[in-house]
């Protein structure tokens, strides 16, 4: 019977798509576990170093490192951390929306923007909208190394030291849980003083060995690197989680469509059978 051939091929093709999305879901699930472990492993370091920087910003140092001095903001630098690949739901789109909002606000205050991108999606997006991209790195894979991102960080730090940029931000997705990822923007330079758990008020300063400049140079550079790196590994975990969720809902949707089509197909088949029988009966009656 040649009923609903198109419907049958359609069902078959959707079944194939469903197989692919289901496979991608499982791959993402296993990768998510690994990237999450990596994210959690590097978290203590970046947490501690931010804590130290926080202490430092509450001290009253004789020597003020340029990274700690607020300047009038004429141009900001932003490091945008995105994923390399798509098919991960609204992850990158949400991130770009957040950064575009910020960019609009800066624009309205006549502040210019320099951008360094980490990850292929950000590179595509910002070259499409003709933003001022001054550095990019992509294809870092699932196990990024700190070495890989030193280049873009160096561009930004040099820019800050030369006075081309007056503020440095990093924006990436924060891993809240498997279902939720949130774009967050962190100001790296100049260092912002946060809240303290213990009371450190009063007039005090660190002893620096060997010298304040040397130590602070080293510490602040490490700080920027570790925060950006943490952003990168966190974004990686987000990417896998978002992909897993997106692929799961894609598989579910494919299942629904298949169900509907199957119903349509069955009805058409039944209608054809009924018609045939009535034709036969009518034929018999006519004899």
């Amino acid at each position: 019977m040649a009923v609903g051939k198109e419907i049958r091929t359609k069902i078959a093709s959707i079944k194939n798509t469903q197989k692919i999305t289901r496979a991608m879901e499982m791959v993402a699930a296993s990768k998510m576990r690994k990237t999450k472990d990596r994210m959690q492993a590097t978290r203590p370091y970046s947490k501690k170093i931010s804590q130290i920087i926080n202490h430092l910003s509450h001290a009253n140092p004789e020597y003020k490192h340029p990274y700690m001095i607020e300047r009038e903001v004429k141009r900001v630098g932003v490091i945008v951390v995105s994923s390399d690949r798509g098919l991960c739901g609204g992850l990158n789109a949400n991130l770009f929306r957040t950064i575009l909002n910020e960019m609009q606000q800066w624009n309205s205050r006549n502040i210019e923007i320099d951008i360094c991108t980490v990850g292929g999606k950000a590179a595509n997006f910002f070259s499409n909208i003709n933003a001022n991209v001054i550095g990019q790195v992509a294809k870092l894979g699932d196990t990024p190394h700190q070495m890989d991102i030193i280049g873009v960080i160096k561009i930004m730090l040099d820019g800050y030291e030369n006075g081309t940029i007056d503020q440095l931000h990093v924006i990436n997705n924060e891993f809240v849980n498997t279902m939720t990822q949130k774009p967050v923007m962190t100001q790296l330079l100049p260092v912002v003083a946060g809240d303290l758990e213990d009371d450190l008020s009063g007039h005090w300063d660190y002893l620096y060995e060997p010298g304040a400049k040397e130590v602070l140079d080293h510490l602040l550079q490490r700080y920027v690197e570790s925060i950006v790196y943490q952003g990168l590994v966190e974004n990686n975990a987000c990417e896998q989680a978002a992909r897993m969720v997106a692929m799961k809902s894609a598989s579910d949707n494919a299942g629904n469509i298949i169900k509907e089509l199957q119903l349509v197909y069955n009805k058409a088949r039944q209608a054809a059978i009924t018609q045939e029988i009535s034709e036969i009966v009518a034929g018999a009656a006519a004899v």
Binding site: L207, V215, L219
Partner: peptide, 19 residues
């Protein structure tokens, strides 16, 4: 092992940052 030689840190040490 601080850069300028080994240091020993006891409680209530003065604030210090060293490589």
């Amino acid at each position: 092992p601080a850069e300028l030689g080994e240091v020993g840190i006891a409680p209530r040490h003065a604030p210090l940052i060293t490589k």
